[in-house]
């Protein structure tokens, strides 16, 4: 296991996994004048296969290259403007995941054989996150979800 951290997010990755963190400008909570100052939020991609350098926030351009035993975990932090909204009302992390939670229709872009899951939640400090997971093969969900949970169980959020 290798411990990786970036701006308060920490994860232990098994051998063969990789992590790529990047930042986006997101609208903060509006001020009294109605202007929303820009703040930076974090997006993290964890994968057990070599992530292509160019890809979208939710894996566009990468999921098309996934093989049957590949897993992509996306942790997407939303801006302060989303803090406390109904979508992020859950303050319980959505893992451990269950194979039954995955479905081909839960992918950003449905691809043959793949299965996905998307969950919105807030961290203990109230920061809004989306967890998006793609499995290379929905038929192997039992095995792949166990591997994804191995990583998610070590994830610590700010």
């Amino acid at each position: 296991m290798t411990q990786i951290s970036d701006r308060g997010i920490t994860v232990d990755l098994p051998a063969g996994w990789e992590a790529d963190f990047y930042r986006r400008n997101a609208a903060a909570a509006p001020l009294a004048e109605g202007h929303a100052p820009e703040v930076t939020t974090t997006i993290a991609h964890f994968a057990n296969w070599p992530l292509p350098n160019e890809r979208g926030d939710f894996g566009g351009g990468a999921v098309e290259l996934m093989r049957l035993d590949d897993i992509l975990i996306v942790l997407f932090e939303y801006g302060e403007a989303e803090r406390g909204t109904a979508l992020f009302s859950s303050t319980t992390v959505p893992w451990p995941l269950r194979p039954a939670d995955f479905d081909a229709n839960r992918l950003q872009r449905p691809l043959p054989g793949q299965a996905g899951l998307q969950q919105f939640f807030s961290s203990a400090s109230g920061r809004p996150f989306c967890l998006f997971v793609v499995l290379g093969s929905g038929r192997d969900a039992e095995t792949l979800v166990a591997q994804a949970n191995e990583v998610l169980d070590t994830l610590s959020l700010p």
Partner: peptide
């Protein structure tokens, strides 16, 4: 880190490629 300062970890061990 990457040039923008964000963290990057590349698995070299335990990979099939």
């Amino acid at each position: 880190t990457k040039p923008d300062g964000a963290t990057r970890h590349v698995g070299v061990l335990g990979t099939e490629h």
